[in-house]
């Protein structure tokens, strides 16, 4: 049976790993290669590495570092941050990255997804959307690189991305990021219900029970950052990942 994936999401900033709270206040948590080695030993399902400044600064992906990460990974690697051309995607795949995660470039023009999907297949291109909650339960698509809302409806953006070839959706709840207080289950349920492609839900994981809730709400995969790099109430840096048997027991019996 196909397993639900549980994906550590590592944030890259100037060559080091950081973790944010609500997309702000990045705290240094360590060296990416070292973290990947630990995640190898723990046999994690998949790894996501997002460069949180590459798009903001208008720069390129750090190909050298990404190549080192990909070579070290014994699990699938998804990279995001500053990818805005087919040529960059080609370089990343040649380095051994399995999937590219695209946000800024696709919010500007969805056709980048189609270009990559046509050459490398839909499964290799992921559209990531950050959603922010406003007053009265309203939700806004948030353009992280510009630090402002996108005027379009979040679910319309997801549909557009899928129809343009995105093979997977990463949906992140901005207000939950790094808080470890639980996920936006209603958002996950609503998104999963209307998607024909796998959904990775992120933002807010603070316990294994949160992961199960997201999966029950329809997520194919759950990503978490703080939960896998912080330990205890003082957020001491410690890389952890549940044992396979633990995840098996946790996610047993959830309908796909």
């Amino acid at each position: 049976m196909l397993k639900h994936r549980v994906i550590p999401c590592l944030l890259l900033r100037q060559g080091g790993l950081v973790k944010t709270k609500r997309f702000r206040d990045p705290v240094y948590v360590g060296d990416p290669i070292n973290a990947i080695r630990i995640f190898n030993e723990k046999e994690v399902d998949e790894l996501m590495v997002l460069d949180i400044e590459a798009s903001r600064e208008g720069g390129e992906p750090d190909f050298e570092l990404i190549g080192q990460c990909a070579g070290e990974c014994m699990m699938p690697l998804c990279y995001g941050g500053g990818v805005r051309s087919l040529e960059q995607a080609r370089q990343l795949f040649a380095l051994g990255v399995e999937k590219v995660c695209i946000q800024s470039a696709a919010l500007s023009d969805m056709k980048i997804l189609r270009e990559i999907a046509d050459v490398f297949g839909s499964q290799s291109v992921l559209f990531s959307l950050d959603v922010r909650s406003g007053l009265f339960g309203r939700r806004f698509a948030y353009h992280a690189a510009k630090r402002m809302d996108d005027s379009r409806q979040w679910h319309e953006l997801l549909q557009a991305a899928v129809s343009h070839g995105a093979g997977e959706i990463m949906l992140n709840a901005v207000d939950r990021d790094g808080m470890m207080k639980g996920m936006d289950v209603a958002l996950i349920r609503e998104a999963a219900g209307q998607l024909s492609v796998p959904l990775i839900a992120g933002g807010g994981v603070g316990s294994l029970a949160d992961i199960r809730q997201a999966v029950e709400a329809g997520a194919s995969a759950v990503s978490a950052g703080a939960f896998f790099v912080f330990y205890g109430p003082h957020r001491a840096v410690l890389i952890t990942y549940p044992r396979y048997q633990e995840l098996e027991a946790l996610l047993q019996g959830v309908q796909r």
């Binding site: 049976m1 196909l2 397993k3 639900h4 994936r5 399902d45 998949e46 297949g121 839909s122 499964q123 093979g167 997977e168 998607l195 024909s196 492609v197 796998p198 194919s220 995969a221 309908q255 796909r256």
Partner: peptide
């Protein structure tokens, strides 16, 4: 069917 395409992830 709730099965998604692509078949993506860990399977036995």
């Amino acid at each position: 069917s709730s099965l998604k395409i692509p078949h993506m992830g860990w399977n036995t």
